[in-house]
Design a protein around this nucleic acid. Structure first.
Lengths: 215, 215
DNA sequence: CCACGTCCCATACTTTCGGATGGGAATGCA
DNA sequence: TGCATTCCCATCCGAAAGTATGGGACGTGG
């Protein structure tokens, strides 16, 4: 009845990379005690890349989002490309909705929260190893809640998109280029965002959005 | 010769609070295997406070800095007051020099980095339990660099003051009125702040300052 | 003493922001 | 079908922000 038809002897090869050595230790201690998993660790993206290059694609790769070498999802893409189709997932603390989008759009196989105990780890890994996409329930909920209750109506999709750029301190022209829209359009969205968030300028909008957990 | 005069049989009672359950698991798994330690865990500051209130001061308390309930060092002070003189330390990822100052000035017994492996944990805890202050070497180095050259770090008092207004989304003219300074002066400070924080405008400066825990 | 850093102010300039006005197009729903 | 919503673009304008020049005052330490 097991899925390990005839291959039970082969262990799942896992590569986990995180600059928090404590987290690494969790994996080394807990997962290695699971008989069907072999864990390798790294502390930077470069180190992880080396491992993959040297020892071939891993069955599951877990990358910390805030690790040295990862520039947001850029490092994720790099690892995905290198791991030849096998699952690469992100492990992080509290990702923003925007980050979630970027992560999943980059082709990640899932997200593992550090707020989750180690017991669900093994399951998540087996899940992704089977080709599924893994995401904790609370994140799915937040993802659906994207339009949240603000006083003056909720933000539209485009407004949320623009807001996420505002939250990086980008200026209208940059946003327009990135989104391939005209600058006046961005201005309009910014104005609309400020109204809905009762902010008087973009800086306040970012602050309000942050305090509201909107980002 | 030990400080545990006649009480050697008693275990060191440790309370660790972190919203990353993974980290909690590290302690539960590793430290509890050390025969002289008894570990209790919590996921929020309120939960930790409850524990302390209910079961009396712990021998060592470890608090995550980014946990729900901790407003920067405010939560730390609360815990220190409650723990009746026994050591309270902070556990975190990469603290800013400014945070370090605040933490130590608040009366913390030390700082434990998540970038440190679990093996040094037990030593750090025993160290603090003995009444010493524990801080990783790499932090001590950064700490001395903090107050010196104005090259890229350390904001001056006035700059911090202006920054706090920026963080409220106020505009130059307002700040000038509130501080009874001329607007050009405010502009200069803002420019200086942006340079030191490597931000390209006020909005980015606020974001960086927030992420840095500078506010 | 001078050098250095911090703080303060002023003038002048360019760029960006925020707001207003006016229009066109696609969607979905009553 | 009419209507609302959302999206997109354009032009104009005043205000704010950001940059670049000046300069003067105050302290600390070499």
């Amino acid at each position: 009845m097991s899925a390990l038809n005839g291959m039970a002897a082969d262990k799942i090869r896992i590569l986990i990379a995180d600059d928090h050595e404590m987290v690494l230790d969790v994996f080394a201690m807990y997962l290695s005690s699971a008989s069907d998993m072999a864990v390798t660790t790294a502390k930077t993206l470069d180190e992880a890349v080396e491992r993959i290059s040297a020892e071939g694609p891993y069955d599951v790769v877990l990358l910390d989002l805030n690790m040295p070498g990862m520039n947001g999802v850029a490092g994720l893409r790099r690892a995905i490309k290198l791991n030849a189709g096998k699952p690469v997932a992100i492990i992080t603390g509290n990702p923003t909705p925007r980050m979630l989008d970027e992560i999943m759009n980059a082709g990640s196989s899932g997200i593992v929260l550090k707020t989750t105990g180690v017991r669900s780890l093994a399951n998540a890994i087996r899940f992704m190893h089977a080709g599924e996409h893994y995401m904790p329930l609370e994140l799915v909920r937040d993802r659906h809640n994207a339009g949240r209750t603000t006083k003056n109506g909720r933000l539209s999709d485009k407004e949320m998109m623009v807001l996420s750029y505002l939250a990086e301190g980008k200026q209208n022209k940059e946003i327009a280029n990135d989104l391939k829209l005209a600058e006046p359009t961005i201005k309009m969205h910014v104005t609309s965002i400020c109204k809905k968030l009762t902010a008087s300028n973009r800086t306040q909008a970012v602050i309000v959005a942050r305090d509201l957990g909107l980002i």
